[in-house]
Every structure is written in C-alpha cells, then in structure tokens.
C-alpha cells in the first residue's frame, strides 16, 4: 500500500481521491511502521519550508525517510513543498532540507506585474529527459501550480521538467528512485492521473 505521508501540512485527501480513481491503494499516515513497510511513498505538502522540516523531525520521520529512500531505494514522489524538502536548503527558511537532490529552493524574484507571486494557475511543462514518469503522456501536458518558491537543480542531469514563469525553472526532477514535481498532479485532471498511474506502475 502506497503511503501518503501526513506530517501536518497540506491537502492530502485529494491525492488519495485521485489514486483511488486510478485503482491504486493508498493510506494517509504518519505511522512509522506503516511508512517503513510501504513499497512506495508520496511526500505532499503546502506551506512554509521550516514548518515542513520541523514537522518531519518532530514525527521522527527524517531518519526513517533517509533509510527508506537512500538505503532501501524506495520510490518516492515529492509534490510541491514535498519536492522542495528534497533539496539542500530554501531561501524561505533556516533549516537544512533532506538534501537528496543537489538543489536549492529559491524565491521568485520578480516585481513584474505580469508575473504575480504566488505563481498560481495552469502551465504547460517541457520534458527534459526520458522518464518512466512520462509513459503515455499527451502531446501537450498542463498542470496546476501554486507556489512562491521554486527549485534550482545544480546537476542538469537531475532536471526532468521545466516551466516558464518570468523565466525557465525546474518544475520536476528525477534521480533514481527520487522524483519531485512542483505542481499538483492531484488537481490536474487526466495529466495528473497519468502521472500518478506511471508512478504507481513503473517504479
């Protein structure tokens, strides 16, 4: 059973709803044992970076996740703040991130009226490398975004997707068993459904 990790942030029900729609069994949980036994993990999250990290620490999840993801190579999908927590650090906070992906999380530095922050709405994304996450995807793929910070990968080889908002930025990364997306697949109709299907079936 896929574990949707509940660490007190974000709308987890909509992820479970979409997984249910595609016939995948998932549980929303903060139980260390359930998470330890899960064959796949999803780390969602909406909110501030330090809040996210300290909630993971408080629940004893950091060591467990490091063991699962780094040693056991359990596939994990980070969504929105979840993705950002995989990076080294964020301009939004003082705490260190999980550091699984060599990347930093930085703030949109635009004062242009054409690009209000938070960046909120649908965007087409550009695929940067081949991926099992993209099997059977559509010719043009759009996703729903809500965020004020974005990820900047230090290793080009990790970049999976880019999006343009004032400038190009990394809206998806993939390194082995670790995948992250900045957008909300659970709110992105058939595009998000296919992405979840691929994560469930191909990893």
């Amino acid at each position: 059973m896929i574990a949707i990790i509940d660490y007190g942030l974000g709308n987890l029900g909509s992820i479970k709803n979409m997984l249910k729609k595609i016939g995948a069994e998932a549980v929303i949980t903060s139980d260390l044992e359930v998470i330890a036994n899960a064959p796949k993990l999803i780390l969602p999250g909406v909110g501030a970076f330090d809040n996210g990290m300290s909630n993971l620490h408080e629940r004893g999840l950091v060591d467990l996740l490091n063991r699962k993801v780094i040693q056991e190579k359990t596939p994990i999908l980070g969504i929105c703040l979840g993705m950002q927590l995989f990076t080294n650090k964020s301009e939004e906070g003082a705490l260190s991130g999980l550091g699984w992906i060599d990347a930093e999380t930085v703030k949109f530095g635009t004062n242009d009226r054409k690009f209000p922050v938070p960046h909120m709405g649908w965007e087409y994304v550009t695929l940067k490398k081949e991926s099992k996450l993209w099997d059977g995807m559509y010719e043009k793929n759009k996703f729903y975004f809500v965020h004020s910070y974005f990820v900047r990968c230090n290793q080009t080889s990790d970049v999976l997707l880019t999006t343009n908002y004032a400038h190009d930025y990394d809206s998806g990364f993939e390194k082995g068993n670790i995948v992250g997306v900045q957008f909300h697949p659970e709110k992105s109709h058939k595009y998000g459904m296919q992405l979840f299907r691929n994560f469930v079936n191909n990893y």
Partner: peptide, 8 residues
C-alpha cells in the same frame, strides 16, 4: 464535490 473533482 472534492471527491468528484480533479481540479482546483
């Protein structure tokens, strides 16, 4: 509604 909807 939220259970039926895969959009914001």
């Amino acid at each position: 509604v939220a259970e039926e909807c895969f959009m914001p």
